[in-house]
Nucleic acid binder design. Structure first.
Lengths: 246, 246
DNA sequence: CAGTGGTCTAGACCACCAC
DNA sequence: TGGTGGTCTAGACCACTGA
């Protein structure tokens, strides 16, 4: 049995067994041993393998479910959460039509290029200045109406050939997960109201200077490292950003 | 023992024991039997009283802690969460200085009056048209700088004499909880970028038409009913709205 | 030191699903 | 009908707090 509480661990800092189990299981997702959508072994199988009780495994799985890393289905099993559109709509896409209808946005790619990171980019992504980055610019629509103009910056080292290998899909987080094994586990967004610059105004079909919602998002992976920097300008004349405070 | 699973309950719809326990304990907070900041009985005491095991009580308390209704302190006991400034700062006040410093805002009251609800107000608060409401207008500052101009609407029936009995405090949610036994458990916010109207611009000391962040918030109590409607205009030249996506 | 919450275990039974 | 997750229980022991 590898999972145990040694005297040293006990003295330095207390890490409950179920957290050690959780760390192990998270790393199985992070390394790709467990793929998105795949079923994982039953609680008893994991418990036997790690030499702990089923209740301890359950507590680890419960936390991972709360973190949206797993999906449990009674009677069927436990599955690695996929970055499908339904999940993204719920977790990451907060812009909604004013009538309340929620839908996954369409995307129209404006540009994809690989360049050297600016100081700002390298700081946001915690990489070295002038490291290669891939920059995607696109316009997103809701119900056929242009709603968002955004620029997405990702480190080229973690996403080789994303700019050339294929057309950039609508669901980027799904691509990150399936093709590159990178799971966006959480994100931090900073919101401001600004006057829309001319270039984005032209893309969105609105007048330059119109107030728009500026969203500055940093996407974080399973190990807590920043993976993506995204800057979005959103029309809010017919749409709004939804924030639930709980 | 009052908590048990009868044949009828079983056939109609399954409600696990720990949820029944939770409902009971939540209602103790809702009715004021347990006051904010007060310690509640130990897990074993509650278990004995309700005729269930300590593990079942624990699961109910765990959920209530996740809902921020309780605060657990190892070695000391479990306490009813108070609407103190630290909690509000974390849960409800999302506007932050651009340098990242978080602080509880000061308030300067502009007007307090009791009037008849407009159609919009009565819809937001789920009350009858022309029911009495209390309207508070105030300007809030961060680091001494005016940041928010807002209007708060609450039903007069649930907050008798709030407009006259005392000066309106900075921490409104604390007043709701302590004086009126109304706990704001969660809120829904809708965000838009708009051009600042002249009146609010004057209050904030900015030019009319400047893009500002408009926040439309509905505050919900423990039973899920809307209790407060709040409309805020926020300067975002030196501040930003923080949203964590998890 | 007593009392509280936190962890871990073991076992029983229920609800749900697929075969 | 067997296997999965979900609930409930009982008991042991650990970690933390305050008197």
């Amino acid at each position: 049995m590898t999972l145990t509480r040694t005297e040293k661990e006990r003295s330095v800092g207390f890490h409950p067994l179920y957290r050690q189990v959780k760390e192990r299981l998270v790393s199985r997702i992070a390394t790709g041993a467990w793929q998105p959508g795949q079923i994982i072994p039953s609680e008893f199988q994991i418990a036997d393998e790690l030499g702990v009780s089923q209740g301890t495994v359950r507590k680890a799985l419960d936390e991972m479910t709360a973190d949206r890393l797993l999906v449990r289905r009674q009677g069927r099993g436990t599955f690695v959460a996929a970055h499908d559109e339904a999940r993204i709509l719920f977790q990451f896409f907060k812009l909604t039509r004013d009538d309340g209808g929620r839908e996954f946005p369409d995307s129209e790619i404006v540009a994809v290029e690989q360049t050297k990171a600016t100081d700002e980019m390298s700081e946001k992504l915690a990489i070295a200045t002038a490291d290669d980055v891939i920059v995607v610019k696109r316009v997103r629509s809701l119900s056929g109406e242009k709603a968002v103009s955004e620029r997405i910056v990702i480190p080229a080292a973690r996403f080789p050939e994303l700019d050339t290998a294929e057309p950039v899909p609508n669901n980027l987080y799904g691509l990150y997960a399936e093709r590159y094994g990178v799971t966006i586990a959480q994100a931090t967004e900073t919101l401001k109201a600004i006057a829309c610059p001319p270039d984005d105004a032209a893309l969105l079909g609105i007048k330059s200077g119109t107030p728009v919602l500026a969203i500055d998002r940093t996407g974080i992976d399973l190990s807590g490292r920043p993976v993506e920097w995204r800057f979005s300008l959103c029309r809010t004349d017919k749409f709004h950003y939804l924030s639930d405070l709980k």
